[in-house]
Simulated scan of single mutants.
Amino acid sequence: MNKKHIFVVGLMSGTSLDGVDLAYVKFQENNYSDFEILFAETIPYSKEWKQLLQNAIQFSEKQLEELDITYGQFLGKIVNNFISNYKIDQVDFIASHGHTILHQPAKGITLQVGNGAQIAKITQQKVVCDFRTQDVKLGGQGAPLVPIGDELLFSEYDYCINLGGFANISFKKEGQRIAYDICPVNIVLNAYVNKLGLDYDDAGKIAGSGSVNHQLLEKLNALPFYENLPPKSLGLEWVKKEVFPLIDTYEKDVSNILSTFVAHVAYQIGGIIKNSKAVLFTGGGVFNTFLIREIEKNANIKITLKSTLLINYKEALIFAFLGLLRVDNQINCLQSVTGARKNHSSGVIFTP
């Protein structure tokens, strides 16, 4: 490794299936909080990949094994193109989250596809991946993983919130880092906007044109998950079982569904961060202006947005950082966050 700086490519694919986020990050060796995202890009999924990843929850074990390999090959090629396009000449390793297909920590199950051996073979680089499995084996939720990055890279904020497929939060309480999934966001909003032939609700305009269905809003806010104490995490399976049937029972109009669900998200987030002066918001949901305004109202705060680079690529940055901690055999999974039996250094390392 370079003596002064460490150069990492971080890869992230979120539940909202926007695409694969890549971030090329420079860390100072003796002070990780001195970092810079040098290059970053999102490679959108083709229609075929999107359908494949959406439907993989129904795949057989053999089909999942095949998907793990082909998706790993796909990631390897994307990284090679990224390195070539940006003329990157130094990579110490690649850190890849993969794509979550199944997440049922209560049953001891979590599955992220994106075979590390394939990525290493195609890129001829060291690869760190599979960050969640060890935590689940240690009795943890295997999620969220980003809070160690919030702790060590963004400690000046009272709360760090990511608005992606799900909203998750991280904060310090009584000397311990607490983090959990708050509620679904884009995984639901995008599913209903897709019915209109759109990928997403641009700036929340469609949601802003709808009306809140108060009966549905009440039912959503009464879901038992919201009564659970952290550590707790959400997955697509829960949304399919608990959220979609509820929405489809009470409302048919897409603009009303979006408006109501935004009200639900704003209520859930606003109640946690009420009156706070230092909240870092990142993730694709930040560009939903209507959602941000509703959160501001519910939380009684003014949200100041950071650079687009950080908003879009914070998770890819932090997976690069998780990989760095793993390579150095330092703790990257916090017991206080996931509920595992102990703090630990998670991730599997592959060499070409």
Rank of each mutant, 00 (worst) to 15 (best):
Asn2Tyr: 00
His5Arg: 03
Val9Ile: 15
Ala23Leu: 04
Lys26His: 03
Asn30Cys: 02
Asn31Ser: 14
Phe39Lys: 14
Ser46Phe: 13
Ala56Gly: 10
Ile57His: 10
Gln63Asn: 08
Glu65Cys: 11
Ile78Ala: 08
Ile78Asp: 00
Ile83Trp: 00
Asp89Leu: 00
Thr100Ser: 12
His103Trp: 09
Gln104Lys: 15
Pro105Lys: 13
Ala106Gly: 00
Thr110Lys: 11
Val113Leu: 05
Asn115Ala: 12
Gln118Met: 15
Lys121Gln: 15
Ile122Pro: 13
Thr123Trp: 02
Thr123Arg: 01
Lys126Ala: 06
Lys126Cys: 04
Asp135Trp: 07
Lys137His: 10
Leu138Ser: 14
Gln141Gly: 06
Pro144Trp: 12
Gly149Trp: 08
Glu156Arg: 13
Asn162Gln: 15
Leu163Thr: 13
Ala167Leu: 12
Asp181Val: 12
Ile187Val: 12
Tyr192Lys: 05
Leu196Asn: 07
Lys205Ile: 08
Gly208Leu: 07
Leu217Phe: 14
Asn221Asp: 10
Asn221Cys: 14
Phe225Ser: 05
Leu229Ile: 10
Leu234Ser: 09
Val243Lys: 04
Val243Asp: 01
Pro245Gln: 02
Glu251Ile: 03
Val262Cys: 12
Gly283Pro: 10
Gly284Glu: 04
Gly285Asp: 05
Val286His: 06
Val286Lys: 08
Leu291Glu: 00
Leu291Pro: 15
Ala299Cys: 09
Lys306Cys: 02
Ala316Gly: 07
Leu324His: 03
Cys333Trp: 03
Leu334Met: 08
Ala340Phe: 01
Pro352Arg: 05
